[in-house]
Design a protein around this nucleic acid. Structure first.
Ligand code: FES
Ligand code: FES
Lengths: 141, 141
DNA sequence: TATAAACCCGACTAAAATAGTCAAGTATCT
DNA sequence: AGATACTTGACTATTTTAGTCGGGTTTATA
């Protein structure tokens, strides 16, 4: 069970953005340099974030991205959903009545994994971007 | 973030084992058939479980595996550790003072992922094999 | 004592997912 | 006009996962 770079980068980049986006948009180039993330990869990630209205883009020179909502209103779960970093613990299709092995009944561990999924998502539901910025407010890179 | 088959199968197989292992050892063949897991793959998994003393093997005809401890004393975390299904959320080496990008300081999200890791491991720490068997005690496959 | 059931072990491989790269744009500021 | 920066889609290398395969050894039982 591991977190992928895509999810990690998305959050990292947004925390960076939230810290610096006081007046002007922040360019991906800056984020790329500060956080050590490939610019091309960041572009893919921000394209998704924009489509899900987490950020807004400003084109042209001096352009970049700005948050589309208050940092307090952006939860980790929103970010993860936007970049398709879903938590997936069950093997079967949840809606289906069939189990993961094709049998007519859910497997012995189905409920367990479902609980686990909720447990993890609860965590992402509680944490907002604002919390993360505050956690880092005393530190400087 | 997803659970791998190895971890899922390990738990599934052990729940099956715990349910049927009243007197006699349970063969992997039986588990394979009941749970729809490849026999060869199960062998790999049980080899690890045996090395970590979660189960004991009985060789020869009518052989199989038995639990090496009480079901109540086997926590999910023990199973996951045994089969190397670790929860890995941080990118950096935890012991090191360096961050994930090679910088001298931990990244903006390090603490968050560390918290997440603890949050997930807490779940695995609480659940025992016995809990799972009980959850399924009314169902029959 | 032969046979079959079952564990034991290591190497190999196909498929999938991840983590990018690359190329060719378009918009906007100065 | 030129530079900066977003936009898009396709492509690729690497890694991980989820097995398979081929050879064992042990032991109950007919
Ligand atoms: S995970 Fe849902 S039935 Fe097995
Ligand atoms: S995850 Fe530990 S420093 Fe980034």
């Amino acid at each position: 069970m591991k977190l992928t770079s895509k999810g990690r980068y998305a959050v990292m980049a947004l925390v960076d953005l939230a810290r610096f986006n006081t007046i002007n948009p922040v360019s991906l180039r800056d984020i790329s340099l500060r956080q050590g993330i490939s610019l091309d990869y960041l572009e893919q990630i921000f394209s998704k974030l924009r489509k899900k209205e987490i950020v807004q883009s400003v084109r042209g020179t001096q352009g970049g991205y700005i948050l589309n909502k208050k940092a307090k209103e952006i939860k980790l779960i929103n970010i993860f959903e936007a970049v398709d970093e879903k938590v997936k613990t069950v093997k079967c299709k949840k809606e289906s009545k069939k189990g993961c092995n094709g049998k007519a009944i859910k497997c012995l561990t189905h409920n367990l994994w479902d609980e686990l999924e909720n447990h993890i998502n609860n965590f992402f539901d509680k944490k907002s971007l604002d919390d993360l910025v505050k956690d880092n407010s005393e530190r400087r890179v």
